[in-house]
């Protein structure tokens, strides 16, 4: 992008819409600072909704929406929110957004609403959302916060979609509900373990293993 911001990010006369600094908000959580595999947040839903890709996809979209919208709202209000009740304010905003998602799903995609049931409501308690509000949106400008929300949301999404891919193909022999092995005429024995939450632990463990081997990240 533009070179002036590259060298002097302090002189913020006109920062490019997607400067290097801002790009990092989106790309960092995808790998190096992934909310699920590195920060180990949002594990509960990563285990619960990932038996099939379709509900997982809806879940991912919902979480991205809630992250972006709540980051934006809190960032806009950041100078008004009284410090002493900020957590409650964050919670109220997140709960409202999650209820919105849940109501829309109930109206327009009732089957998905039934499949995801409590897990949509549980986005409220997804640590990623509160974590980003507390760590980022409260101290940054709206546009940056939106990018940060998008980054964390995408980071969460690709992990749960990857987990769901392996669980669905091994557990039910399907990809996005499409009976892959049946179509190819292969007699595939499904693995019941993959359908249970245990399967998610195993797949997630493998993903973390591969990822940390590549990035060289170690817990300290």
């Amino acid at each position: 992008m533009s070179t002036e911001t590259l060298e002097a990010p302090v002189v913020k006369k006109k920062e490019a819409l997607l400067s290097k600094r801002r790009k990092k908000f989106v790309t960092d959580p995808l790998n190096d600072d992934n909310p699920v595999t590195v920060q180990v947040l949002g594990i509960c839903s990563a285990l619960a909704v990932t038996t099939q890709m379709k509900p997982t996809f809806i879940m991912a979209v919902s979480v991205i929406f809630v992250l972006i919208a709540s980051n934006l709202t809190i960032s806009l209000m950041r100078n008004l929110v009284p410090g002493r009740i900020r957590i409650i304010v964050q919670l109220a905003v997140v709960a409202t957004l999650v209820t919105l998602v849940s109501e829309v799903l109930k109206a327009y995609s009732y089957d998905m609403y039934k499949t995801l049931s409590v897990f949509i409501g549980l986005i409220i308690t997804n640590c990623i959302v509160m974590g980003r509000l507390e760590a980022f949106a409260l101290g940054n400008k709206p546009y940056d916060s939106v990018l940060d929300g998008l980054g964390s949301g995408l980071g969460y999404s690709w992990i749960i979609l990857a987990v769901a891919f392996f669980r669905e193909i091994l557990g039910s022999g399907k990809v996005f509900g499409y009976a892959l092995f049946d179509e190819m005429g292969i007699d595939f024995t499904t693995n019941g373990l993959m359908v249970t939450p245990v399967g998610a632990f195993i797949v997630l463990g493998f993903i973390i293993w591969v990822q940390r081997t590549k990035t060289g990240y170690v817990e300290h």
């Binding site: 008004l80 009284p82 304010v89 109220a92 919105l100 109501e103 109930k106 109206a107 009732y110």
Partner: peptide, 25 residues
Amino acid sequence: IFALVLTVILGGLLSGVAQVLGPTQ
């Protein structure tokens, strides 16, 4: 006052949405 205003705005928003989406649901 902040808490009250926030509650009214968020509550109003939610009940509005529930009203609009009610028939479809």
